Amino acid sequence: MAQADFDDEASLGPRSAVGSIPSAGLYIVATPIGNLGDISHRALAILAAADLIACEDTRVSLKLLNHYGLKRPLISYHDHNAKTSGAKILDALAAGKRVALISDAGTPLISDPGYRLVADARAAGHKVIPIPGACAFITALSACGLPTDKLLFLGFSPPKSSARKKFVEPYRSVDATMVLYESPSRLPAALADFAEILGAGREAAICREMTKSYEEIRRGSLLDLAASTAAQEHRIKGEIVLAIAPPEGERPKSDQIDDLIKKALQDLSVREAAAAIAWMTGEKRRTIYQRALALQGQISDDPQ
């Protein structure tokens, strides 16, 4: 990547005639995703100078603003009031006001409301200025160890199993790391569905509570992660980013396949286990069948 070309003079953005005071426009301001220290000086300066701050939930945003001693007028802007609140925001911009758009956490518009407001503001000729900062899925990708050269962000998957499988099916062969947001209560079922459609051995990472006290990154195959999260379903809490490796990493290694076969043989016949594992992994059924026969013999000879 080429060396960054930084401005010699630290600036807030487009300037008015009053020097460092930002000019009128819509500022898209990224806020922390958990740790309140993860906000830029520029973002704080914009929020301090804003004539109006548009946010999803004023109660959530007030925690951030109060922490930094900022008292500015707020307006609630979310999917259910976007039409009426959007009109008020556009009126403020038309009156030459500085409006900051923030979300409850992270970068606005990333699986959050705001797309229509930005489009309407630009169509009306208003300046739209991004103030970059934290983003949950980028934060997770930087630390989970999966490929980052090509990415496919899918937002939230559908809540029901059948819809979730149809949702992810078109992307099963896409040569990119897939990233999704998932709720704790649906995580085990979602992992099981993804294992069925994308391949049981596909590498993945559960990135939970990024930047917070209980931050955790757990790596493994989709099948293993589905099993481990199902076992602790009621103990999983917090915000979750799920990253899934590209297809080239989906075939399990031989020892992983052996583990899958052993688990299947606990409930299935050799023929049934071979069919199931071959379907999940993409390996030849005859190869899996021969390996299952050998493993069944080892299990039978085990003194335990």
Rank of each mutant, 00 (worst) to 15 (best):
T84I: 13
Y68N: 06
Y115R: 12
Q256Y: 01
I261T: 10
T177A: 09
I21P: 03
G282R: 06
F167L: 02
I129T: 15
L180M: 11
E239V: 12
R251C: 09
R218S: 07
K165P: 01
P147M: 01
A10W: 10
K253W: 03
I89L: 04
Q232Y: 00
Q296G: 15
L70S: 01
E182V: 08
S76D: 04
P303Q: 14
R251A: 11
G69T: 13
G34V: 05
A92V: 07
A200P: 00
P170I: 09
I28R: 00
H78Q: 08
A294C: 08
I261L: 12
S300F: 12
K97A: 14
A200Q: 00
P159N: 11
L152I: 06
T84A: 14
F156Y: 06
I299S: 10
L12S: 13
G133Q: 07
D112M: 06
R186N: 05
T139N: 03
A190G: 08
L117I: 09
A226Q: 01
V18D: 13
S269G: 13
A54N: 01
I46A: 09
L109Q: 08
R208L: 03
I217Q: 00
A200F: 11
A10I: 14
D267M: 09
V270P: 00
I89H: 05
G86L: 09
Q266R: 13
G220M: 03
P170T: 13
A87W: 04
E215F: 09
A136P: 00
S23V: 11
S161K: 07
R164C: 07
A292G: 07
A274Y: 02
G25F: 01
R98Q: 05
S111R: 05
D224M: 01
A49Q: 12
E169H: 10
P132L: 02
A136M: 00
K63R: 15
E196Y: 07
L74H: 07
C55Q: 08
K150T: 06
N81L: 10
I75W: 00
